[in-house]
C-alpha cells in the first residue's frame, strides 16, 4: 500500500503528466472512446436532470406529460413557497439541521483526525504502535454495526433525541486519522520541526505555524470526506432522533415519501418531496463543482492508501 515515496512522487509526476495524456498521442481522434464516455456521462446525469425538471412541476404535472421535459407550468417558485408554509416550513428546519450536523461533524472529525494523525506520525510515545494497529483494524469495522449499541449508550447518557446524538458519533473518523497519518509522515519533514525547536518554538506554536500549512491538502480531503459522510448520514439519525424538528433533511424527506406512499389521506406531497430533494442536493453539488481543484487532488490521496 502507500509506500511512503509514492505520495511525494505522485505530485511532481502528476504535474508533468498533466500536459501529456499518459500514453503516446496521435492515434486519431478517439471517437469511440469519447462516445463511450459521453454515454456513461448521460447515464449518470439523466436522473439529476429528471430531478431538476420534476422540481418545476405541480403535483398533477408530475403524473402527466413527458417526465424528462418541462411541463406547461413552471411551478418551481410555487413549490419552494409551499415548502416554507407546509407543516410550518419544517423543511427549512431540516435543511438547517443538516448544515449544523455536517459542519459540526465534519469540522470536529477533521480537527480530531489532524491532531491524532500528526501525533501518530511525528511523536514516538509508548503505545503508539498498538494504537495504530487498533486504528487500522477499526477501518474495517462496519459503522452500521455500531448504531444499535450507540443508541442504547446515548439513551443511557440522556442524549437521545438531541443534536448531540448525531454530532458526537460523527466525530469518529478512523479513515481520516489514517489519511493524515500517512500524509504527515512525508509532508512534515523531521528537519523542519527540529529547526523550529532550535529556534525556540514550542510544540504548540510549531503545530500551528509549521505543521498546519504543510498538511493543508490532507486537511481539505478529510474535511470533504467527513462533511459528505455526515451530510449523507441516514441510519444514525433515523435511529436516534424522534423529534421532527431535529431531523436532517435526508430523514425528513424520507418520512414524507413513506407517508405519501402509504397513501395517507391528504399526505400526497410528491411535488414537495421532489423539490425538497432537489434543493437538498444543490449545496453539495455546488460545493463539488466549485471546489474541483481541491478535491481532485485530495481524493487522489485515497489512491495511495
Amino acid at each position: 500500500m502507500a509506500n511512503s515515496t509514492l505520495l511525494s512522487r505522485t505530485r511532481a509526476e502528476r504535474a508533468a503528466a498533466e500536459r501529456t495524456t499518459g500514453e503516446p498521442v496521435g492515434q486519431g481522434r478517439r471517437i469511440g472512446s469519447h462516445l463511450v464516455l459521453v454515454l456513461l456521462a448521460i447515464y449518470f446525469v439523466v436522473p439529476l436532470w429528471w430531478l431538476a425538471v420534476a422540481s418545476t412541476k405541480t403535483n398533477a404535472g408530475l403524473f402527466g406529460g413527458a417526465p424528462l421535459w418541462f411541463g406547461s407550468d413552471f411551478a418551481l417558485g410555487d413549490n419552494i413557497a409551499t415548502l416554507f408554509s407546509y407543516q410550518g416550513g419544517i423543511y427549512w428546519i431540516w435543511f438547517r439541521n443538516s448544515f449544523v450536523y455536517a459542519i459540526a461533524g465534519g469540522v470536529g472529525a477533521t480537527v480530531l483526525s489532524v491532531l491524532a494523525g500528526y501525533g501518530l506520525a511525528k511523536y514516538r510515545f509508548r503505545g503508539r504502535g498498538a494504537f495504530f494497529a487498533l486504528l487500522l483494524g477499526s477501518v474495517m469495522v462496519p459503522m452500521t454495526a455500531l448504531v444499535i449499541p450507540t443508541f442504547v449508550l446515548l439513551s443511557g447518557m440522556g442524549l437521545l433525541n438531541t443534536m448531540w446524538a448525531v454530532i458526537l458519533p460523527s466525530l469518529l473518523s478512523p479513515v481520516g486519522v489514517y489519511l493524515v497519518r500517512v500524509y504527515a509522515q512525508d509532508a512534515v519533514p523531521e528537519e523542519v520541526l527540529d529547526a523550529g525547536r532550535v529556534d525556540g518554538a514550542g510544540e504548540i506554536r510549531l503545530f500551528f505555524q509549521v505543521v498546519l500549512p504543510l498538511l493543508r491538502p490532507a486537511i481539505v480531503t478529510v474535511l470533504l470526506l467527513t462533511t459528505v459522510a455526515t451530510w449523507n448520514n441516514f441510519f444514525l439519525p433515523l435511529a436516534v432522533l424522534r423529534d421532527p424538528n431535529l431531523l436532517p433533511v435526508t430523514v425528513g424527506v424520507y418520512n414524507w415519501q413513506a407517508l405519501s406512499n402509504a397513501g395517507a389521506g391528504g399526505e400526497q406531497v410528491w411535488n414537495l418531496i421532489v423539490t425538497g430533494s432537489f434543493i437538498s442536493v444543490v449545496p453539495l453539488v455546488a460545493a463539488f463543482l466549485s471546489l474541483q481543484k481541491y478535491w481532485q487532488g485530495g481524493l487522489s490521496l485515497g489512491s495511495v492508501r
Binding site: L40, A41, F44, V45, P47, L48, W50, L51, V228, W231, N232, F234, T250, V251, V253, Y254, Q257, I273, S277, S280, V281, L284, V285, A287, F288, L289
Partner: peptide, 16 residues
C-alpha cells in the same frame, strides 16, 4: 458528470 452522483446523499439517490 460521472463523479457528481457521489455528492448526492444515498437517501435522495434512492428516492430519485
Amino acid at each position: 458528470l460521472i463523479f457528481v452522483p457521489y455528492a448526492i446523499p444515498a437517501v435522495i439517490g434512492a428516492l430519485m
